[in-house]
């Protein structure tokens, strides 16, 4: 039987790239997003038997226990959870609306914590599992206009390190993948000279792609990565080197 991976934010960008690579590696993927994008529908058409879609707004924190219960009831105990869904409001803190701060922290930090809580327990019963939280290099570097986003990602990294300590004895690894700037819809505001400057600063002269970061996620899910836990894998073309 194919191993089940629960993947949030699967409809676009990095999430979509992760779904594609995991399907190529014969995982069963349960894609979770608010709505199914055209690209995800097309992917489902090409491998319908191993890609399922469940609509959910992960910002609705009170609904997450029932969502996880429904996942386990319908699909069984998952092998892995990839917390990829996130929003990236760009704006200086001094004028960022409080509702946007709450929305961001709910979706980027609290939702992954709750999803981990409710799906980790099933992984422990299987004595095997993987949790991968998608962070960002912004968790450790500074970037104008991304203070709350950076706080959420740094929070996710701290969360992952301590959860790795709790879950390790149960055969579950917990790690973060921290991509650099990738050309996705989330970073579409980064253009012109700013984008060129980010590219110039990378060691390899180009941005890491969603496919580069997805490959790291796929590796962390593999048997070969069973001794890697509580760490952050940076995939940024050497931008922070």
């Amino acid at each position: 039987m194919n191993k089940l991976v629960v993947l949030t934010g699967a409809s676009r960008g990095l999430g979509l790239a992760i779904a594609e690579q995991l399907l190529q590696q014969n995982y069963q993927v349960l894609a979770i997003a608010r709505s199914q994008s055209e690209a995800l529908k097309q992917l489902a058409q090409s491998c319908s038997e191993r890609l399922d879609f469940m609509p959910a707004d992960l910002g609705q924190l009170d609904a997450l226990p029932d969502l996880c219960h429904a996942i386990i009831k319908q699909y069984g105990r998952p092998y892995a959870l990839i917390n990829n869904a996130a929003v990236g409001h760009d704006g200086v803190l001094a004028t960022l609306h409080n509702s946007q701060i709450s929305e961001l922290l709910n979706l980027n930090l609290q939702a992954p914590i709750l999803m981990s809580k409710y799906l980790l327990r099933s992984m422990l019963l299987n004595r095997a599992g993987r949790i991968v939280n998608i962070s960002s290099i912004v968790a450790k570097t500074g970037f104008n206009g991304l203070s709350v986003y950076a706080a959420s990602k740094a929070g996710l990294e701290g969360f992952s390190r301590s959860l790795a300590r709790e879950a390790g004895k149960g055969g579950v690894t917990v790690n973060c993948v921290a991509p650099g700037y990738m050309e996705t819809e989330m970073t579409s505001a980064l253009k012109g000279e700013k984008l060129e400057s980010v590219k110039r600063r990378s060691a390899i002269g180009r941005l890491a792609t969603p496919e580069d970061a997805a490959a790291m996620v796929a590796y962390l899910l593999s048997e070969q990565a069973s001794a890697i836990t509580g760490t952050v894998m940076t995939v940024d073309g050497g931008s922070t080197a």
């Binding site: 226990p65 219960h69 386990i72 980790l120 327990r121 099933s122 422990l124 019963l125 709790e166 879950a167 004895k169 149960g170």
Partner: peptide
Amino acid sequence: LGFAMLVAQLEEDLGIDPFT
């Protein structure tokens, strides 16, 4: 960790998680 597993096992067996 064993208690976390017990709560998960009971949720599967009884369909409830009182602590949530």
